[in-house]
């Protein structure tokens, strides 16, 4: 594990992963979008609006997955001071915020025609909105201090504190009565018919691979930014 803490080693692995994750993302969208938009059947109750699920659920899934990556990396950063772990969290945060926003917007656009309202303050919707705000707070904290290291540490602590929200989001529909329906992922599989589960799983794979590819590009930028900071310092010292 500590071997991967070395930035050079890590970026070599990331560069090897990038073409594969990109290929998977492209293939998943090329196959998944026609399935989601054309070839999957309308729902017996919700008709064509069920197609919103094929972007809403992957976005929701990713908003939680990315948060877990950030929380895990932040723990590694706080405990072992792994800079790469911190950079992974830093590179992931805007993507997680974007996924949460897509989840909220597509959810509102699904709720209005089916439930009869864009928004209610039930436990599920509220906890996902809080997740979005935690992302924004994390991003704001990163560069809020003159001393970058203090900002990094404060943001990492916020990420860990915010991780209590993750199980709350997942179990909100079981612990409390909500307007939002229960989870489609159960112990016995998905509560979907096969020709709806297929496009959904393909889109989830596509969103995940998309995240992996884009986070690697962002990680390259973060590593370069660190090098630039060092180079500036040595340049200034030489003058």
């Amino acid at each position: 594990m500590h071997k991967y803490a070395n930035p050079t080693q890590f970026i070599r692995i990331a560069n090897a992963v990038l073409p594969w994750s990109t290929a998977i993302a492209v293939a998943a969208f090329v196959i998944g979008l026609p399935l989601a938009l054309v070839f999957s059947p309308p729902d017996y109750q919700q008709g064509e609006t069920v197609r919103i699920m094929y972007v809403h659920v992957p976005a929701a899934w990713m908003s939680l997955m990315v948060y877990m990556v950030i929380a895990g990396s932040s723990a590694a950063f706080l405990i072992w001071r792994h800079t790469v772990a911190h950079l992974i969290a830093r590179a992931s945060a805007p993507l997680g915020a974007m996924f949460a926003a897509v989840c909220l917007i597509s959810g509102m656009l699904w709720g209005q025609p089916m439930w009869g309202t864009f928004w209610v303050w039930d436990a599920r919707l509220t906890s996902v909105l809080i997740l979005f705000f935690i992302y924004i707070g994390y991003i704001a904290l990163l560069d809020a201090f003159d001393d970058p290291e203090r900002g990094d540490r404060a943001a990492a602590i916020l990420a860990l504190v915010g991780s209590v929200n993750v199980p709350i989001i997942h179990f909100s529909v079981e612990w409390w009565s909500t307007l939002h329906q229960g989870t489609i992922i159960t112990m016995d599989g998905l509560t979907l018919s096969g020709d709806m589960a297929r496009p959904l799983l393909i889109m989830v794979a596509g969103f995940t691979a998309f995240y992996v590819s884009v986070v690697i590009i962002r990680l390259r930028a973060e590593l370069l930014a660190a090098k630039i900071r060092n180079a500036r310092q040595s340049l200034a010292a030489a003058e």
Binding site: Y44, Q46, V50, G116, L179, T183, I184, T191, D195, M196
Partner: peptide, 18 residues
């Protein structure tokens, strides 16, 4: 003063439901 619909998490095409 307001009525909202709540649906469950079971999605399926009409033929399967029928």
């Amino acid at each position: 003063s307001e009525v909202l619909a709540k649906h469950d998490e079971n999605y399926m095409p009409r033929e399967v439901a029928d």
